[in-house]
Amino acid sequence: MINSKHMLPAITLASFLESTVVPIPIEALLVPLMQKRRDQLWLIALMTTVGCLLGAMLGYLIGYFLFDIMRDLIMSYMTTEKQFAAFQERMASDGFWFIFSTGVTPIPLQLATLTAGVTAYSIPLFILATAMGRVIRYFGLAILVYYFGDKTEELVRKYKWSASALALCIVALIWWLTLN
């Protein structure tokens, strides 16, 4: 795949699948690919982002239409209209930061895509939050590969959880500052 003419479509498809049905982080594939194909580093990050955004939109639509189909069943056995309305209000006020945080942390993006669809969260804000989070994540990896080359994989393995915790704290701080 690394030297194939289908490398870019393949990484786009892999990213699409990762953001919809495959709960395995794409970084395991992305970092080695970026290391071997530094000549297309930025294009790889871009196509990974595009695939993710397309997959996120599908996840949103699945959440939206599946909830629409199953609404009566869900309201009968899992929640009430009042609880769901409160959840929708919370999503309307804090959804951007929730979606954004799933884009930069190891929290599965599928959780945000389905939740956004179920609550009929603003599609433009959903796309913006998802894009911002994943641009930071994928282009951040590209920057690491650009500067650290073959040592990137080791750095990612070593500092993944620390970096994720730091990213989550930064998102929480920005969210808190916007409330005050």
Rank of each mutant, 00 (worst) to 15 (best):
S76G: 06
Q35Y: 09
F100A: 02
V104L: 01
Q88D: 03
T49S: 10
F100D: 06
V22W: 13
F84H: 09
L73Y: 08
F98H: 06
L54S: 14
T48K: 07
L66N: 02
Q35R: 14
A92M: 02
M34R: 11
E27F: 00
I74Q: 00
I62H: 03
Q40G: 11
P32R: 03
I107P: 01
G59D: 01
A86E: 11
G103L: 12
D39P: 09
L58D: 09
R71S: 06
T49V: 06
Y60Q: 05
P32L: 02
I62W: 01
L73H: 12
D94P: 05
G59Q: 03
D39S: 06
M34D: 13
Q83I: 05
L53E: 04
P25Y: 10
I24V: 06
T49E: 06
K82R: 14
I26V: 15
W97P: 03
R90I: 00
K82A: 15
A45F: 01
L53T: 09
R37L: 12
G103Y: 07
T48W: 12
V50W: 04
R37P: 04
P108T: 07
R37M: 03
T79K: 04
T79Y: 00
W97G: 02
Q88I: 00
E89H: 00
E89T: 00
Y60L: 04
L58A: 15
M91E: 05
L109W: 04
M57L: 13
A28H: 11
P23H: 05
L61A: 08
A112G: 09
